[in-house]
Write a protein that binds this DNA or RNA. Sequence first.
RNA 1: GCGAAGGUGGCGGAAUUGGUAGACGCACCAGACUUAGGAUCUGACGCCGCGAGGCAUGAGGGUUCGAGUCCCUCCCUUCGCACCA
Length: 852
Amino acid sequence: MQDAYDPTAVEREAQRFWADRASFRSVEDPAKPKFYCLSMFPYPSGKLHMGHVRNYTIGDVLTRHYRMRGYNVLQPMGWDAFGLPAENAAMANKVPPARWTYSNIATMKGQLKSLGLALDWERELATCKPEYYRWNQWLFTRLFRKGLAYKKTGVVNWDPVDQTVLANEQVIEGRGWRTGAPVEKREIPMYFLRITAYAEELLAALESLPGWPEQVKLMQKNWIGRSEGVRIGFPYQLENQERVLWVFTTRADTLMGATFMAVAAEHPIAEHAAQHDPKLRAFVEECKRGAVMEAELAQIEKKGMPTGISVTHPLTGESLPVWVGNYVLMGYGEGAVMGVPAHDERDFAFALSYRLPIRQVIAVAGEAFDDQQWKPWYEDKEHGACVNSGRYDGLAYQAAVDAIADDLSAKGLGEKQVQWRLRDWGISRQRYWGCPIPIVHCPSCGDVPVPDEELPVKLPEHLVPDGTGNPLARLPEFYETRCPSCGQSAKRETDTMDTFVDSSWYFARYACPDQDRAMVDARAKYWMPVDQYIGGIEHAILHLLYSRFFQRLMRDEGLLDVAEPFTNLLTQGMVLAESYYRDAEGRREWVHPSEVEVERDAKGKIVSARTRDGKDVVYDGIGTMSKSKNNGVDPQALIDKYGADTARFYIIFASPPTNTLEWSDESVEGSYRFLKRLWSYGLKFSRAEKSQSLHKELRFEIHSVLRQANYDLSRYQFNTVASAAMKILNALERLPADRGATAEEGLSILLRLLSPITPHVCHYLWRDLQFGQDIMRAPWPEPDPAALEQDEVELVVQVNGKLRGSIKVPKAADRAAIEGIALANPNVQKFVGGQDVKKVVVVPGRLVNVVV
RNA sequence: GCGAAGGUGGCGGAAUUGGUAGACGCACCAGACUUAGGAUCUGACGCCGCGAGGCAUGAGGGUUCGAGUCCCUCCCUUCGCACCA
């Protein structure tokens, strides 16, 4: 054993040992319980960032822990390799996205290897390879024939200068990121996947996921958004034709309070009215120009304009004006809403600014209505009852909804309806670096799916996009083709798929990445579902919902048995860092934190900060690591300086997996120090005399810490497992210097407990100190019940809930005896001081509280 | 705007069910060793107070023998919002 801890040498040796024995190759084995542990695969953006390191370290801790517990574990890795950044890099460097992507994969694979992750690299896949994406295409053609994939128009951001579609991310304050031109909305034909057909099942099955965080299930539930309400028709006349304006509402009980209607700018009524009214046309155009993004739409000032058209209230016959409202979404419900100012906050504000009538139709006992001031109870359907509503007066929410729905139904102007917030998934992207949509447009046959024998539709890899539309659309060799059905010349679809399609089923493909005759084979039925999935909380809705959807699509193709892809889900927090900037003539110049020296006051608050060469910088608080704020910490530099074990230990120790992790270079030092101490202890141990000496107290301590650590592992609280390892080392260092029985046992426990977190150094010490050949094959440590036995227990004594002392009582002592000992305690006597003891609360094993 | 989560020392965090607030670390401080130390080791370390003691878990209120934990009101931060992945 070397005197000094040399992580480079230790890690090289451990990694060679694993590679020589193919330690992480996983083979289907029905005799053993399986454990499929998966971290979200990375986008090959260039280099690993700390978020990756955190994600994969967490997954590796679980993987190694389950291996030692005897499970047949699979932990694979691959690349989410299609996407927008490759096109941006291509434009900047004039290099095809393919070359950029493959080179990034090579770099990042090397980095992942240096982390010592227990990955089965033989199952590696990349979504940009035809062997992978042909199955996207294969499934798409199946869905198309079933009607689960279909074509309709969808709205996109249009940059009028570059003549190209922009991603939401490329729209900065309503303008194109490259051209600065105001972005327009444009409707184009697109393919959609009918996820709404599975809405009911996706919602109901959330109940069957006890291994998912409640938070995520709740977000998905709200996203799917099932609401029960009434579809209501408001008849009107247009060009001497009888028509009906339909709306959906969950508050049919307030129908008698409707004083206006509001429709989206894209609604046929708005389009019609705008034809004859230039002002209205301008307004409709303005609404259409605005944002596509819902977050932005929801925050714009609520504006409206009357259409001059009126509809008839279905129950009262009253005439109601129809307005165009910029806050009404065409994509949800009917693209029209009834305006009930008295009982909807948005309608209230709208009515106030446009002086529309406000009519109270719900009352809550003891509350007065004020038509100038909104109060939350106006929306209270729990305690309200109808007023000013004719025959519905006095009815509570449900009774009123039922009665009104019945009356509407009798007139053919309404019925109860279930409405979903979830919309079908538009997967067409007008981009090059993605999976081609396997459709041929034939002048006679229409949209024809590409037959199986012609799959895959290969994406040419040599193109370089230039930011003005999709280069595939300018490549005749790609789009000129024949109709698979009638043989005449036809045009191939040039749109590619949303990259979320690629990532919605990769987890099943890992089971059989070499299968070239089917999307997945029987091996997928062995490994699926994923037992533990780990990834960022930012994927809580979209990626996870799409994956649940795809799992069901594949189930319904007979490819998989189970409906849910991920049994247990761990959502890790983001990695954050401080950021600093220098004012450079009004522009912020971001300075990397490693170049900043900070001065703190006696309480540690930052007083001033300056660069190493003395220029003042401004502290901008803590936030996600990003290129734009120049505050990223390079994992590679960390590994080069301290080794992978220190990086892994720090990341696990600094914060529980679900919290954000605030980066601190100083704390990394602390982790390194711990591993050096572990090494020194191993060295001392290797040179000490063997003895049989047993240390009862420290043995109790080690086993108590181990018991807690095992509990913490089961609840994913890995930071306290790392603490437990430190506590055990602290205990070992308090032992006499010989190699006694307690030291032997304690170190064996420590190395095994720590090995999932810092596998290299534990592997090395385990062998070198002759505990065994391969620590991964050692059994997981369990506390010895005998070591946890105690004759006496310590209880805390309080007087009126305040801590006044502690007592030791025999383990078997009864309540009366404990009370007696507690009251006899001199400090307790002092605070009782002759007052009447009203009550003594005894909590066995914990405390005694004397109430006076 | 809507949906979700979170606020505990100078900092990261700990405290299974309501039961000793601050485990384990970082930083800072003092000391030892040393030619030297940004290595290593030892000790101290929530705030106020000489002390006895008092006060402290974002703010304010409540329930309880006892509240970081439960309830109500408010404030702040982070994530998602359908074309970033």
